[in-house]
Each structure stands twice: as structure tokens, then as C-alpha cells.
């Protein structure tokens, strides 16, 4: 009887593995075929800014969105990772009490689970309060808010996994708390970098946080206070377009996003191997 059950469950498991993998492979396949096809047909959309009547099927490409994404995501990731690493050190009880750190962890957990649209609405409320229109700076801020709890969680986990002996040894040598923390960071660097790259990926792919806050720029972002747009936002806006050429650009943009994600993943693995040199097995 129990062997029958075993067989049945095993069959169900293989079935569900297939059920999981098929749609995911399909999605990658569709994006590569459709988006790659659109790119091969018209490779210059990558480096062209939209011309007049762009959204009506006119000339141009989505170079503005690529640049907009980079201008927003890179500063946001840098700011967020600085904050995140600092917070993660603070949570290690060298500088804080257990109860206070516990409260901050609860808050971070909540922020981690908060849908990104809430950050978008929050920044929008501030913008309305300041009577400003959506701009690049607001986009950077909302992405920072989005990425910060994510990176903090990974950094916190990585630093918590540093063996206790390291901390005890450094203290017994007479190191200050700060010096101990630096050594811990170095030890946890592979995990922290992986966390930062995960945060980067999340920021790169998120449309809901920036769709309200950056405005709808149809040209290259000129300055911090000018409107811009991001790749996921144009995918969202152009996916339902009546014009085939505009829709094709959405496919091309999503292909580009997936390629960027693979690159981030490869970089993450590379860094993980490289910075593991500080970690003694």
C-alpha cells in the first residue's frame, strides 16, 4: 500500500515539475523569438530616440527608455546598497540592543512585502505636495525605496552567517566595533554583492514604482528634474497598442530586459566566486 502511494506521489511530483517548467520555458522562448525577431528586423530601435508620432506607429526606437532605466536604476542601487549595508551592520547587535533591532527587523519585513505600487503612490503624494511634475529624481527615489529593504534583507542574512569566532577573535585582539564590522562585511561580501544584484534586478524590472513618478518622457532624460521613462513602463504602455510596429518594440524591450537579467545573473555568479577568497572554508 505504501509503495503504491509512493509511486503515485512520485508521478504527481514529476508532473508538477513539468507543469512548473513548461510555462517558464515557454515565456523565455516566446520573448526570445518574438523580441529577437523584432530586433533583427529593425535593429536601430535600440539606438534611436522616438521621432514625431512615435506612439502612432511612427519612426524611432526606445533608446530613451534604456537610458532612463540606467539613469534611474544605477544611482538608486548605489544609494540603496549604502543604506542597506549600514542597516545590516546596525542589526548585528554590535551597535544596537536586541529589542530595538527586533523592531527594525519587523518594519523591514513589512517594507519588504509592500507592493511596489505603494512606493510609487507615496512618492507621488510627495510630488503633489511639492507641486512638482514627475521627474527622474523622483524615479530614483522610488526605486531606492523599493530596493532598500530587499538588499538589506540579503546583506543582513549574509552578515549573520559570518562565524561567531571571527567576531570574538577581533574583539579579543582589541579591535573597535567599527573595525570588527569592516572585517565582517569583507567576510560577507559574496552574499552582499548577490543581494545588491538581486535588488538591481528588481529595480530594473519594476514598472509600478516608477510609472507615476517619472512622468512620460518621450526623449532622452535631460536632467534630474526632467521627465524620463523606463523599459518596463514602455512595455506596459505599448503592449496594447493598435500598431504592430509599436507592439513589436514592446517585445524587443522585453527581450532586452531578459538579456539584461541573464547578464546580471552571470555577473552575480562570477562575483560570488571572486569575493569568496575572503572566506576561509
Amino acid at each position: 500500500m505504501k509503495y503504491l502511494e509512493e509511486k503515485l506521489v512520485k508521478f504527481l511530483m514529476v508532473f508538477s515539475v513539468l507543469l512548473t517548467l513548461t510555462p517558464l520555458i515557454l515565456i523565455i522562448g516566446i520573448t526570445v523569438v518574438k523580441g529577437g525577431g523584432a530586433l533583427i528586423n529593425n535593429p536601430e530601435i535600440l539606438i534611436k530616440v522616438p521621432g514625431p508620432k512615435y506612439l502612432l506607429g511612427g519612426e524611432g526606437g526606445f533608446f530613451h527608455a534604456i537610458m532612463g532605466s540606467f539613469y534611474m536604476v544605477l544611482p538608486a542601487t548605489i544609494i540603496a546598497s549604502l543604506f542597506a549595508v549600514a542597516t545590516a551592520i546596525f542589526l548585528q547587535l554590535d551597535y544596537s540592543s536586541r529589542i530595538y533591532a527586533g523592531y527594525i527587523r519587523i518594519i523591514l519585513d513589512i517594507l519588504w512585502g509592500t507592493p511596489s505600487i505603494i512606493y510609487g503612490v507615496f512618492i507621488l503624494v510627495i510630488l503633489i505636495f511639492l507641486q512638482q511634475r514627475g521627474c527622474l529624481l523622483a524615479g530614483i527615489f522610488s526605486l531606492t525605496l523599493l530596493e532598500f529593504p530587499i538588499i538589506t534583507r540579503y546583506a543582513d542574512e549574509a552578515i549573520s552567517c559570518v562565524p561567531k569566532e571571527i567576531r570574538e577573535n577581533t574583539y579579543s585582539m582589541g579591535a573597535t566595533r567599527w573595525e570588527t564590522s569592516v572585517i565582517k562585511i569583507r567576510y560577507a561580501l559574496p552574499g552582499i554583492i548577490a543581494g545588491i544584484l538581486i535588488g538591481l534586478g528588481r529595480g530594473l524590472g519594476d514598472a509600478a514604482a516608477v510609472i507615476f513618478t517619472t512622468g512620460t518622457g518621450n526623449s532622452l532624460p535631460g536632467g534630474l528634474l526632467q521627465s524620463a521613462t523606463a523599459l518596463p513602463v514602455i512595455i506596459y504602455q505599448q503592449a496594447n497598442s493598435f500598431y504592430v510596429s509599436v507592439r513589436d518594440q514592446a517585445y524587443a524591450a522585453s527581450f532586452l530586459l531578459i538579456v539584461l537579467f541573464f547578464i546580471i545573473n552571470v555577473i552575480s555568479r562570477h562575483f560570488y566566486a571572486k569575493f569568496s577568497k575572503y572566506v576561509k572554508g
Binding site: 515539475v17 512548473t20 517548467l21 517558464l24 515557454l26 515565456i27 516566446i30 520573448t31 518574438k34 538581486i198 534586478g201 528588481r202 530594473l204 524590472g205 519594476d206 514598472a207 518596463p232 512595455i235 506596459y236 503592449a239 496594447n240 514592446a250 517585445y251 522585453s254 530586459l257 531578459i258 537579467f261 541573464f262 546580471i264 545573473n265
Partner: peptide, 24 residues
């Protein structure tokens, strides 16, 4: 191999899922 694949996938942005769903 499966868990590496799943790791990569958990990062794919939601708009891409939306686009594929809309399409097919």
C-alpha cells in the same frame, strides 16, 4: 540545474509575464 533555472526565473520582471500572457 533545475534550481539554477528557477533562480534565474524568479528575477524576470512582471511586465514580461504580462506581455507573454497578453500575447498567447
Amino acid at each position: 540545474s533545475i534550481s539554477a533555472f528557477i533562480d534565474v526565473l524568479s528575477g524576470i520582471p512582471s511586465v514580461v509575464f504580462g506581455l507573454c500572457a497578453l500575447l498567447y
